[in-house]
Nucleic acid binder design. Structure first.
Lengths: 147, 147
DNA sequence: TCGGACTATATCGCGCGCGACTGAAACGCA
DNA sequence: TGCGTTTCAGTCGCGCGCGATATAGTCCGA
């Protein structure tokens, strides 16, 4: 009557995410980055100087995860954290020269990961959209279980 | 030149896995289980008395994760851990009555999660297979990067 | 303008994952 | 038989995620 982990949608997701991070490891280790740190940089390369909260919205993380993570990145010399002069509540996260310079390596990382997936760019985009849809549905059903 | 997290396949996976665990939370909290603990039980419901290593192969986890996890489950009265009488190196993990009894709730959990995905069983199975393929490819490319 | 509500970030505790290492038991071969 | 090798589990350290809580800054209405 029970289902084996391997037959569950949830487990495929769980395992694929771990395999994804494992695949990134050899690509990111030379840069001294963890995967979540790479995500933060990716967000800042698009839009530097975001607040902690804005980063959290982009990445789906709360400050309890982001604050220590950003402090480690600051200690590594990748970003600066400074209180906003206008609104002292918010903290602006900006790239250092070192953080900005890593963008030059990003293309190599992306190509390496795409190669590891064995997918064409179109296939990868299609699967990405399917999974993103699943995420959206799950999030919606969790945050608003009524109706 | 850079890609936003939302446009990356890896990020959709990362976010979907978090949304998946969040969707499971209201289903598993009443049972006093975390998601990895639910996976362990699922594996034991199929095949009770597995060794720690066998569980690790099934779930893609090593003993550094499993041993503390299983100890917590033992403390919660869900499983027993006993050295194999024949081979004293391996540890057999067996369900307690309490752990076995939870299988009765599993169907409710499964239905609740499927509903949260908004997918039909066929759609869920199809997506599961696609994601499992991705996982297999990623794992293969990571463990054997030569050739 | 003053006080309460709201907002943004930070802190704490705990459960994973995982790399690196340790130690004990079983195996295999000289 | 004895010793090196292999196998299995456990331990340690650290970086996430996240629920719960704290604190400081801002806003808004009486």
């Amino acid at each position: 009557m029970s289902l084996a982990p391997a037959d569950m949608l949830c487990f495929s997701l769980y395992g694929a995410q771990q395999a994804m991070q494992a695949a990134y490891k050899p690509l990111l280790d030379p840069l001294g980055l963890t995967y979540p740190q790479y995500l933060v940089l990716s967000a800042l390369w698009i839009d530097d100087g975001q607040s902690v909260g804005a980063l959290g919205t982009t990445l789906g993380l709360d400050t309890n995860t982001l604050t220590p993570l950003l402090k480690r990145m600051q200690a590594a010399g990748l970003v600066d954290r400074r209180r906003d002069a206008v609104d002292e509540r918010s903290v602006r996260v900006t790239l250092t020269d070192r953080g900005r310079a890593l963008e030059a390596q990003a293309e190599t990382v992306r190509r390496g990961f795409l190669k590891a997936t064995g997918l064409s760019p179109d296939q990868a985009a299609a699967l990405r959209d399917r999974i993103a849809d699943l995420r959206a549905t799950l999030t919606a059903s969790t945050t608003a279980p009524r109706c």
